Amino acid sequence: MTSVSYPAAQRVMVLYTGGTIGMQASASGLAPASGFEARMREQLTGQPGLSVPDWCFREMAPLIDSANMTPEYWLRLRDAVVEAVDVQQCDSVLVLHGTDTLAYSAAAMSFQLLGLPAPVVFTGSMLPAGVPDSDAWENVCGALVALGQGLAPGVHLHFHGEMLSPTRCAKIRSFGRHPFAALNRTGGVAKAQALPAQLNYCQARQLTTVGVLPLVPGIAAAQLDGMIDSGIQALVLECFGSGTGPSDNPAFLASLQRAEKLGIVVVAVTQCHEGGVELDVYEAGSRLRGVGVLSGGGMTREAVFGKLHALLGAGLELAEVRRLVELDLCGELS
């Protein structure tokens, strides 16, 4: 098999959102800080043997701890990426992001930027730049070097020398240099043969509301009703095993059916670290399918959450959203 090579990046836009990588001490602890561009230029200039593409820098506003990331911020980040590529003629983008929600944002951008003719790499660090044993510069330099060697268009997650698919990984550790890992999720389906024009990266997006509800033993319909009545447009239902839930609870099933009638898209994913959802294996799963729950297959929580925001935010008809949920758009189900 012949490996595919991609053009080396010539001009990279660095989008700095905040996060640990650029944090500095404050009276209340580490907090996002401006001035990272100057620190980055000083660091790279001090490594004359390092070969990286030319780059420019944009500081997003506000700078945030990634624990404060929101879907509204995603839309502004998406617009910044599109502007960098389509207006400022950058051929690649590097996003500096806090690690707590980095996998969520990278997965979300994978769907928000479908069709973008440029690679976008997310990275960050577990320790701030400049502190002893920090991983900040190795991740920044590693991402730039990878872009300089050529990457496929689409969104990537780079950390500690490893390139991961954002729609197939998650943050699994709160310490060390390897916080992210690819998850062994299964349950792939057919890839979408053609995407609606509304999903192309250059089309406008609307802000949407997606909820997440993990199932636990004894969960009551009232808890599900609270989510349904909160104004959500979609719900990620984190089920047991291969997609089972309280199938002998008529009130719970009735609430799920009510969600479908209200036009709320409910998608089941597994709570397990490995495997995926197969709703028709057990009766407890097939009953969920019977009241309108869709299968998330092997999608991670991060992937399905971002996918639902993208599909609903594109203004697609509800039937089309439901159809595309169960099809692979950018590797989330393959």
Rank of each mutant, 00 (worst) to 15 (best):
L294R: 07
P117E: 02
R185A: 07
G22N: 01
A181P: 05
Q10T: 03
A268H: 09
L102D: 11
F240Q: 06
E138D: 10
T123H: 05
V120D: 02
A108R: 03
G313P: 05
V293S: 13
S134T: 05
F159K: 07
N184W: 04
A146G: 10
C90G: 02
P214M: 13
A25I: 05
M227L: 15
Q89M: 08
A182W: 03
S28P: 01
Q203I: 02
V4L: 11
L63H: 09
D65L: 04
R76F: 10
T244P: 05
P128D: 10
P214N: 08
V265T: 15
G188S: 07
Q43A: 13
S174Q: 10
L312Q: 11
V145D: 06
K307P: 05
P214Y: 13
T17H: 02
A33P: 00
T99N: 03
L308Y: 03
V291R: 12
H97M: 05
H273Y: 14
V145T: 14
G275Y: 12
S295T: 11
R41F: 04
I21S: 00
D135Q: 04
Y6W: 15
A27Q: 11
N249Y: 14
A61T: 15
F175S: 08
P119Y: 08
A220G: 12
G187L: 06
L207A: 04
G226S: 06
C169I: 14
S110Y: 04
A181N: 12
S230W: 12
P71S: 12
P214T: 10
G276E: 10
V267N: 12
G263F: 11
F175P: 01
A107Q: 04
G176N: 03
P217W: 12
A146M: 14
A80G: 08
G29H: 05
V281Y: 13
G18P: 00
G226H: 06
L311E: 03
G297F: 14
G150C: 13
R205D: 00
L294G: 05
W55K: 00
E326K: 02
A107V: 05
S286C: 15
E42V: 10
A152K: 10
M163C: 14
G187M: 05
G124H: 03
Q47M: 08
V12I: 01
A221W: 02
R177Q: 06
D86N: 13
D328I: 00
K171R: 15
R39D: 01
Q24K: 11
V236P: 08
R177F: 08
C90M: 01
T300L: 09
N200P: 00
F111R: 02
S5Q: 10
E83P: 07
P196I: 01
V14A: 01
F175W: 12
G297K: 11
Q193R: 00
L75M: 07
Y201K: 00
V82K: 06
G124D: 03
H160M: 08
L114R: 03
I264Q: 02
L294D: 05
V236A: 08
G19C: 01
S105N: 06
S134Y: 02
M109T: 03
E283C: 13
E320K: 12
A268F: 13
S125C: 07
V145K: 09
R289H: 15
A143I: 09
N68V: 05
G245T: 09
G331S: 11
K191F: 00
G313C: 07
